[in-house]
Design a protein around this nucleic acid. Structure first.
Lengths: 129, 129
DNA sequence: CAGAATCCTTTACGATACTG
DNA sequence: CAGTATCGTAAAGGATTCTG
């Protein structure tokens, strides 16, 4: 989504529904690995292999796709350093500016994650019982 | 993702990579309509038709799926009110607690959305030219 | 090491038609 | 009004193999 050039111009506060621009960030993060990948790079550049290790179960192909997409959107930079087969990925300023919102979701998850799981259990019990 | 019962127990600060629980929120929001749907309900209950109108191009089926998923995860509540074929959807406390992080992403989008679009243009120009 | 290539499965999303 | 049913497409993700 997030396409509507003729969106209403006057946002009083934040109106996601009148200003599709406000949905752009969600589109950027609306897949399994984007947020975590950005987060993994918060302390500095990492290489493909290091990222793969940090991110757990991610597959080579999926990691490459994720990195390409994040690069396309200006959130990180791919840099071939000296030495053979040595490639670093690092956040751009734009990517770094997203760490705050990402952290907000992460903090929420840690605070309320148990409640979500409990709700899921309740829903499943209700459906099964 | 976000499944790993044997995750390391000692999170110093916020370590998404050592604590998969912290990724739960991203999983909840990792689709096109979840965030916007929750946001649309911030001012109070809405009915199916009202939501559909608010959310723009969403299809009946997709809206129903989105609502079911959000309900399953305890973020909103489906309530059949008095009167025939009258159903309200309203945020739970848990769902309401997610409005903050959602807003953080929305604010970021409004601040930096243009930069993302510019980066996309640059990437496309570089690829085409 | 950093990936590209290939194949497969699942899921999301969209479009249309129909119903209690 | 609030869906359900069905069909189709596309994208995401996973698994495996191969390469400069």
């Amino acid at each position: 989504m997030a396409r509507d050039p003729a969106a209403r111009p006057g946002p009083r506060q934040i109106d996601f529904l009148a200003d599709c621009r406000a949905r752009l960030g969600f589109d950027l993060l609306a897949n399994t690995w984007s947020s975590v990948t950005l987060w993994a790079l918060r302390d500095g550049p990492l290489r493909h292999g290091q990222l793969k290790e940090s991110l757990g179960g991610i597959r080579t192909k999926v990691l490459t796709e994720t990195l390409r997409r994040l690069e396309f959107n200006g959130l990180l930079r791919r840099e071939e350093r000296a030495g053979p087969t040595r490639v670093d990925y690092e956040l751009t300023d734009l990517g770094r500016s997203l760490l705050g919102p990402i952290e907000a979701v992460g903090v929420w998850s840690q605070q309320y994650g148990d409640e979500v799981l409990a709700a899921q259990d309740r829903a499943e019990t209700r459906a099964a019982g």
